[in-house]
Amino acid sequence: MIPLSWYLIFSAALFCIGLYGVLSRKNSVAILMGVELMLNSCTINLLAFWHYYAQVRQAPQMSPLVFAAIIFAVAAAETAVGLALIISAYRKRQNIIASDLDELKG
């Protein structure tokens, strides 16, 4: 079967790709896409360790599954608020380039 390190390295690669997207993109929506990739890689990590502990301890493990469920809820909330902020900025400035949105005044 599959070694644990394959999952962990896969999720590290996904995280780094998402990090590059967050740091390098100009468009705010593309930055949010990078954040989605990073959150997904965290969930892969959690579920891989869930499988590992259920195998090592020979007992059902619930905590990693609850963590994964909470990451899903946080991801949904983050996307909804992030896109609402982007649409609100677009209405006021007609601009969603992240480096141009540098004033706090509305």
Binding site: S5, A13, F15, L19
Partner: peptide, 30 residues
């Protein structure tokens, strides 16, 4: 700079994961 930083982070994480012996555990069917 972002590309270099991401690549360094990935290389460091993979180096740690490849040397950590518990991570080499093969996941069996539970």
């Amino acid at each position: 700079l972002a590309l270099v930083g991401s690549l360094i982070l990935f290389a460091g994480t993979s180096a740690i994961l490849l040397t950590w012996d518990k991570a080499q555990t093969v996941l069996q069917e539970i």
